[in-house]
Amino acid sequence: MSGAAMQDLTAQVAYHLARRARWRGLEYVFWAAALASVFFLPAKHLILNEIAILALFALSLDLLIGYAGIISLGHAAYFGFGAYAAGLIAKHGLIGEPVLALLVTGLVVALLGFITSFLVLRGSDLTRIMITLGFSLILREVANRFAGLTGGADGLQGVTMAPLLGQFTFDIGGHVAYMYSLTVLFVMFLVARRIVYSPFGLSLRAVQGNALRAAAIGIGVNWRLVAIYTIAAAYAGIAGALLTQSTQFCSLDVFSFERSADLFVVLVLGGVGYLYGGLVGAVLFKITQDWLAGLTPQYWQFWVGLTLVIIVLVGTERLSGWLRAIRRLAFKGQG
């Protein structure tokens, strides 16, 4: 093979390896819509704020399940820990500025994730589910016991947030809160996107696909899993912190099993393993919840359940196949 042809092939290899990382048209549409909601749906900013936070939380679970195959049924542990950490930081004035407090909370929860990863990552899927679940229950009970610090069952009272960046005061309509949460979500999404399309991200897919072979080509399987578990914990913690910061309150239900379970529903609704699943799922989940709760207050969970069953029965494979077909049709012109 000639030098020129070789160079050409090398360029092709680089191009195809980076293929997954390229931005697609629908992604621009998604974020443009998110931005538009800031300007055109001011009356909905409160629920949009909740959606953005749920989306970030679900993105965190997607990093675990979709990219590393780690199933956690107690992801609320990190969400809740982040929520209380941010609340305590604000209440006791440890760090005045919310963004800085958010970053510090993220680091603290990352540390917690790192330490607990060694417990979680040993053993089979079933062990992992049980340990994560148990861990979130333990944290909840600990928060309940140390009522002097956490307010116990009454929740953490007296959290007041300083203005964002020293400029923007959190308002009752949730406008500042939503812009804040959406910005954090966007930045965290960009980071997650960068990570999953890196060589490290590719190695996670390999580990998930075949851990035996991954180790046989020199990939330190355990360390890769520890790393992504730590990152995912930080994401969940930051989502929890956002909730406390934007509502200036936090209660024991941040640790609840329902929260971890709902998160699963969100992710299954949106689809696993393409990064937007948690985001789309959060939008669908909250809107459906809102809408159905208005329609049939008692039965909205019935409909959510039914949708879930249908999705799982039809199979996400087939559903995403249909989506791909639609997308192909929609983007035919661009070839």
Binding site: R194, P199, G201, L202, I217, G218, I219
Partner: peptide, 30 residues
């Protein structure tokens, strides 16, 4: 093998790992 990955990505994993680039997390693959 890694059924969901391409041969290109598969070989890429091994080569990256050997050259100490397999853990790079802030760099686009390729």
């Amino acid at each position: 093998l890694f059924g969901e990955l391409t041969p290109l990505e598969t070989i890429g994993l091994a080569v990256s790992e050997r050259m100490g680039a397999g853990g790079d997390w802030w760099r686009v693959a390729g």
